[in-house]
Design a binder for these strands. Sequence first.
DNA 1: GTTCAACCTCGACCAAGCTGGAGGTCAAGC
DNA 2: GCTTGACCTCCAGCTTGGTCGAGGTTGAAC
Lengths: 148, 148
Amino acid sequence: MLTIGQVAERSGVPHTALRFYEDRGLITSVRTAGNQRRYLRTVLRRLAFIRTAQRVGLTLEDVRDALAQLPDNRTPTKSDWERLSRSWKTELDARIDALYRLRDRLTGCIGCGCLSLRSCALQNIDDEQASHGPGAPKLKPALEGGTV
Amino acid sequence: MLTIGQVAERSGVPHTALRFYEDRGLITSVRTAGNQRRYLRTVLRRLAFIRTAQRVGLTLEDVRDALAQLPDNRTPTKSDWERLSRSWKTELDARIDALYRLRDRLTGCIGCGCLSLRSCALQNIDDEQASHGPGAPKLKPALEGGTV
DNA sequence: GTTCAACCTCGACCAAGCTGGAGGTCAAGC
DNA sequence: GCTTGACCTCCAGCTTGGTCGAGGTTGAAC
């Protein structure tokens, strides 16, 4: 069994985040008689899974749902990882595709200078989403330009 | 001169957001004797610019900086728009590229099942960013999968 | 001159993903 | 048994991009 400090050090995930993840139901721990957290070793793999999923752009909620769908809500095994990472790939592909389409529109628009609110192709991309305004809560995080 | 309601209706940007943008220095208005906002027509083009930039993934701060760099802090003209949208394209290209690299790593990793914290290629993407944890404030918003 | 929609400010609240601090407890070594 | 670092539980705060409501004012029409 590992203490929270050991898990933090081995995983690189700050102890504050570990408590946060537990609070959100992503990981679990048992308690000592003195109420301190103790972790199974498998939490390390689970954390790796979580961090990778976040890199791909999934929210913690997505990750929690993915983990919850595993039978017994167990730590992902190799075949779970294969299955789930395949679906991430699909998600990534879709995201890349969306960015491509946006870039193509932008490229097509450079030089036209119209930028008119109701007629420009760039403005009128068919989305319900944007009609609510492009507020942060609606959007998924992506990766910082130079990060990956 | 347009009232806030008229601008909201014509631009599709909620009046709450218009006040918010003004507060953040993205748009300006003059006031009537009775303290109500009145907008120049050029604010519509400026709003179009803002919304397009957001679609590309820029933050409001980025947009404010871009607008502020225009001589006289004027509403973007056709040539401003060309220049700025070209730099957005570069940004989009970089983002697409980053997603590609991530996807390729993920693809390479599917099936290995390692997911080990310190050795997996997916885990050890060379970034300082991730070492601070993937917190939301560090990351730029992207576009929702089906949105664009 | 009255009515009423549209406007005003200000402050609280939302999501997501955390961090940091205050004030208190536990556990291991000497 | 004392010290000390690691741990505990709240709770507040940060960021981005807004929304919502309360309580009050303006302005245009009738």
